[in-house]
Amino acid sequence: MTNDPQTKQPQGLSVNQLSCERGYRELFNDLNFSLSPGEILHIKGENGAGKTSLLRIIAGLALPVTGEIRFNGYNCRKYRSEYNEQLAFMGHKLGIKLELTPVENIRSHCDLGKSCTRQQIMDTLKKVGLYGFEEMYCNQLSAGQKRRVALAQILLSQTQLWILDEPFTSLDVIGVELFLKIIREHVCQGGMVLLTTHQEVTLKDCTLKYLQLPDGTLSEPE
């Protein structure tokens, strides 16, 4: 970051002139938006509109046809390691090993980023409602409980930008509420969240923005 010549940088994520194709079909074209600390962006669109593709491009997993993504002013592709330091991603695949226990899973996830103590892991597991499951193998957990393990991983990553693809899948009502609460806390502390979901998200005291795909119009709820 220090290498970047410009000193005064806009904070947050900015997406410029992004376009994406799948095969020879254009998913979206010339997409522009930005996200500042303390904001949530809910990406909407029909199936196949390119929501997942957009999230994967922003996370740096996929390449756009054109356009670039900047985080705090620097190009994410050039400063990949610095960007990844600030990024937590939850995709369709949760990244949980079924042969490992939640604690082992979270620990090996932490090994890829910032390290965490056993106490922190236990506290987080308690927070996401998995107290008492920490020594069970994950293949014995339900789909919703696996989600919660993934949520604990996201929480412990201590990153600013969360990219969540359909995070509420297979969660019950209580789980969704818990998830929303945690998202709100994160955002209130200056975090940023990008998410897709088919549910209505209602969060008070938070700046919530909508992005409609494929045309890319931005709107705010009344």
Binding site: A59, G60, L61, S81, E82, N84, E85, L87, F89, G91, H92, K93, L94, G95, I96, K97, L98, S108, H109, L112, G113
Partner: peptide, 22 residues
């Protein structure tokens, strides 16, 4: 294969450490 299927490989790609080392 198994890391690819359960998504841990994706998370590895998003690690802040250099991928070749991992």
């Amino acid at each position: 294969r198994s890391d690819f299927e359960d998504g841990t490989l994706e998370l590895m790609l998003l690690s802040e450490y250099p991928l070749p080392i991992l």
